[in-house]
Design a protein around this nucleic acid. Sequence first.
DNA 1: ATACATGCAAAGTTTTTGCAACTCG
DNA 2: CGAGTTGCAAAAACTTTGCATGTAT
Lengths: 149, 149
Amino acid sequence: MQDSKSDLQILNRFRQLCQRFGIKLTYQRLEIFRVLLSSDNHPSAEEVYERVKEKVPTISLDTVYRTLSTFEQLGLIRKIHGPDDRARFDPNNKKHYHLVCLKCYKITDFEWPELDNLSPPESINSWGKTQNYYLEIRGICKDCLKKEE
Amino acid sequence: MQDSKSDLQILNRFRQLCQRFGIKLTYQRLEIFRVLLSSDNHPSAEEVYERVKEKVPTISLDTVYRTLSTFEQLGLIRKIHGPDDRARFDPNNKKHYHLVCLKCYKITDFEWPELDNLSPPESINSWGKTQNYYLEIRGICKDCLKKEE
DNA sequence: ATACATGCAAAGTTTTTGCAACTCG
DNA sequence: CGAGTTGCAAAAACTTTGCATGTAT
């Protein structure tokens, strides 16, 4: 879900998705979709709300929550829970992991092919059916280190 | 932080910790410490509260929150944020990772030495100073699979 | 037309905070 | 005694929900 396409291309793509999943194409959903597409960071619901409000001033926060939840259920985005107490939403659907800054809570993606290829211990097979990995490396990002001196 | 020692041993150990970190040894803190020691699961603040209340009926939930936060800052426990919306606390200080059930939100520890030994991509060195890994494998646990049939 | 989506307001959850009373060291 | 800790109550922060109105198909 990260591309830089023209408005029309995004519209067509979103229309397709709505049809495929049987949900209605509304202006609110489209603009939320756009905001997610153009996010390099991992916005919280509040941040998505603020950005969508520029285009759709009458949108309400609960619509943003509901839409994000819908998108999550459709597999378009992923909800992530970092050390920050608010949920964040990840529109990057390539296999990747997260660097989380414990000061500013910024989340940065990184890739780690060696981990992708590592098979988990067999012991976990007896636990149940596994679906996906979530890996976070926590620390302090460069910007925050600079501020500390 | 997981042992099964006598009450006296735990008391002495906790007294030591309090002295080392310069915090006062209170009945509330001691009982919270005991509950954490005897937890094989990863209790939420509420769950710790419920269990401590059996011994210290007058304890308040906010004291539990404050104490857990203190313990976390001292490095005695780790706060974890799963798909469940409440924080959970992990008293296991051995290197380990988590299996998280998306149905019942139960968290199970597992070890993965191959991952411990895997060095992360160099690219992340330019990000900042990393402190620790957090890995979750999500799925459905055996019990919940059984309930579904 | 009608089933779905939105906006509003209100409520629900989880966590934090101000403050007076209390307690450990 | 005095700084640190607790309990209470209230508030804050984040998220969800009921319902009437509006809208996409």
